[in-house]
Structures are given as structure tokens and as C-alpha cells.
């Protein structure tokens, strides 16, 4: 009772566990963001395809992602798949699947937007020069797209980082869950929650801040 509130974070291995939780959060976010960029590129290109069916396919995917809360998707993949199909995925795998499913569509849509913002005459000029479709993408469109894309992609990345807090509901002990477990140990101390959540706030800030710094630097360099 006499303890200063913040000291509860340093009792025993609490702090190490909090850092372990932060690593889980980070690892999950980084894997998801990486995969989302990769698949998002394909998704964006597919959205621009002239094939009607590809367009409808992307549209449906994007709408599902936009209107379904991520928590519902997590429950479907973690509990629903096990119940219906007998696929016993662990929490982290389920989370990667769901967040990549979400990130791919959103990133794809951003990439589509960036691609279409590049004047059409560039594609046509490149084609006139004899470049193949893949070469046009690789040498003309993608490099320019990257620059226009960056601010929005960073924004999406920080949103993904923050949304990973939901995975505590499917048995992944990330930083927020560890925090709640620490509060659970000390619920006799009314200010425990304040200190723990305050430190978690700082940790999220420390994770997201470098992203915006990087974005700002790159934007300046490319401007």
C-alpha cells in the first residue's frame, strides 16, 4: 500500500513480461505490415485489371474488410474455423491471417489510388517505347507510386499496430494483456491501472513515433 504506483511495474519479472508483450505486439504488426505490402501490391494491380470478375472479387473483399469489425474476423478465424472445419490455428497465426486479410485490401486500395493518380500518358509513352506490361510497372509506375503512397501507408501501419491490441481476446498475450495481468495482481492499489495504462501508452507512442519520423524524412528527401 505504501508503494509508489509505478513501482508495481518493476516487481519481480513484471517489466520483462511487459517488454515480452511489447515484442509480441511488434512482431505481429511487422509481419502483418510486411505481408500486407506484398499482397497489397498484387491486390492493387488486380483492382486495376480490366477483367470484370477480378474487379468484383476485389470489391467484395474490400467491402468485407471495411464493414466487418476486426474482432469479428478474429473470432471467425480463431474459434469459427476450429469449430466448423477443425482447423486449430493458434492465436498468433489467426491474428496474422486476419490482419493481413485486412491490410492487403486496404493497402491494395491505397496502391490502386496511387497508381491511378499517375498520368495515363506515362503508361502510354512507356508502351510506345516498347516496354512490356511488367516493365512498365517495375520501372515507371511502382517507383512513382511509392512516393505518393508513403504517407497513407504509414498511417495504415500505425493503425495496424494499434489494432493488434484486439488479439488479447484470442489468447495472445500482447502488451495490453500483460498490463491487465499486472493490474490484476495489484487490484488492491487503486492507482495501479493508471500507471500501467500510462506506461502502455508511452510504449505504443515509442513504437509508432519512429514510423512518422521515417515518413517525414523520406517525404522531405523525395520532395
Amino acid at each position: 500500500m505504501q508503494d509508489l504506483g509505478i513501482s508495481i511495474l518493476f516487481k519481480g519479472v513484471n517489466f520483462q513480461r511487459l517488454m515480452g508483450g511489447l515484442w509480441v505486439t511488434l512482431r505481429l504488426a511487422l509481419i502483418t505490415i510486411g505481408l500486407s505490402c506484398l499482397f497489397g501490391l498484387l491486390f492493387g494491380m488486380l483492382m486495376l485489371s480490366r477483367r470484370k470478375i477480378a474487379h468484383i472479387f476485389c470489391r467484395i473483399w474490400l467491402e468485407i474488410v471495411r464493414f466487418m469489425p476486426q474482432l469479428v474476423l478474429l473470432y471467425i478465424v480463431y474459434f469459427g474455423f476450429a469449430r466448423l472445419f477443425g482447423w486449430d490455428l493458434d492465436g498468433e497465426t489467426s491474428a496474422v491471417i486476419v490482419f493481413t486479410f485486412w491490410g492487403t485490401a486496404e493497402m491494395g486500395d491505397l496502391i490502386r489510388g496511387a497508381l491511378t493518380s499517375i498520368p495515363r500518358h506515362q503508361t502510354e509513352s512507356a508502351a510506345a517505347l516498347g516496354l512490356k506490361k511488367s516493365q512498365i510497372y517495375l520501372h515507371v509506375l511502382i517507383p512513382q507510386t511509392m512516393r505518393r503512397l508513403l504517407p497513407q501507408a504509414i498511417n495504415l501501419s500505425t493503425r495496424i499496430i494499434k489494432t493488434t491490441a484486439l488479439v488479447k481476446m484470442i489468447n495472445v498475450t500482447e502488451v495490453l494483456k500483460v498490463g491487465q495481468q499486472i493490474i490484476g495482481q495489484f487490484y488492491r492499489q487503486p492507482d495501479a491501472a493508471f500507471w500501467v495504462y500510462f506506461v502502455i501508452f508511452l510504449l505504443y507512442f515509442l513504437v509508432c513515433w519512429p514510423f512518422s519520423l521515417l515518413a517525414r524524412r523520406l517525404e522531405k528527401r523525395w520532395a
Binding site: 488486380l46 470478375i53 477480378a54 476450429a82 472445419f85
Partner: peptide, 29 residues
């Protein structure tokens, strides 16, 4: 566009494969 069609076909094939798996396994307690 040919490449994109291939990607799309692959996605379709994957979906089909997954739905086959669905019927194959039914794990319990």
C-alpha cells in the same frame, strides 16, 4: 494482363482447395 489472370486463377484454385479441406476434416474434443 495475362499475368494478372494467372494470379486470379491461382487465388480461385486456392479457395477451391481450402473448401475441399473443409469437408475433409472434422476434429472434436
Amino acid at each position: 494482363m495475362k499475368k494478372l489472370n494467372k494470379i486470379f486463377a491461382l487465388a480461385l484454385a486456392l479457395t477451391l482447395l481450402l473448401s475441399l479441406l473443409v469437408t475433409a476434416s472434422a476434429e472434436g474434443f
